[in-house]
Amino acid sequence: MNIVYHARVIKAVAVRDFKIRITYIPWIMNSLLQPIAWTLILVYAYRSIMGPGSSEALAAHGWAGDPVGFLILGQVLLSLFNALNWRAGMAIQRERWYGTLELILQAPASRIAVLAGSSLFGLVDAGWASFLSALAVIALTGATFNVADPLAAVASILLAAVGALSMGIGLAGLYVLTRSAGPIAVAIQHPTRFFTGSSFPLTILPAVLQYVGYAIPLTYGLEAVRRTMLQGAGLGDVGPLLYRLLLLSIASTMLGVAMVRWAEGVARRNGWLHTF
């Protein structure tokens, strides 16, 4: 009974988010066009600065393969994280903006089911936009890929999406505690772009900064996807990356869930639920 109840809550939240989402056509257009624009900016920046030698420059950092494909995969996965940062991360906070947070928390439904519903919709919503924008940029730039093990590529993409989702859930607990969630969410996007190596090989950074990058689940996802789709790597090659990605994703999700629960308790004790 409980599982059916939780499943219905998850579905209801996801359907509600979908119904609200489709009333904002400019947002939908933006989520499609922004990754395309950003990727093209990066591709032309690389081409203008490095010229035809960009492949060699990347290869020197261990990334043999098409540099355009390297950028597309980085930008698309980063866009997926950004979308989930706003959808899963803001799942609870958004209710505060709507003025419905107290009613959601007054209902007997599991908060985690509510968070899961919003995250699920976020994943689907961000996923199709990222996929279509990636196809558009590939068509526009003629990027080439080298996939030797399709299963490894699919597993890497799925786990990278799980990693991005886990980061969104991890941030949900932080966002619910503050009235400045919007600016914080914006501020988080740029360090993520930098530390995950979405636009350049992470090895170009000083070692100490690389450690920061490898504390972020998305970094492993990006690396696994690039290795399987640009360098023909198989599951055996990216296994350790995916294993670490999975562990970090579980840790991030558990942290987010614990934070949301803790934040609700703090807010109920202090009377912060209604504050906007």
Partner: peptide, 28 residues
């Protein structure tokens, strides 16, 4: 059941039916 005053606390972009449906599912 709780009814808090004011105009907010509803999803304005949804219909009345969709609002009620959503909350009915939260109550199982």
């Amino acid at each position: 059941g709780v009814v808090l005053g004011g105009e907010r606390a509803l999803y304005w972009r949804l219909t009345g039916w969709s609002n009620l449906w959503f909350f009915s599912q939260l109550y199982g």
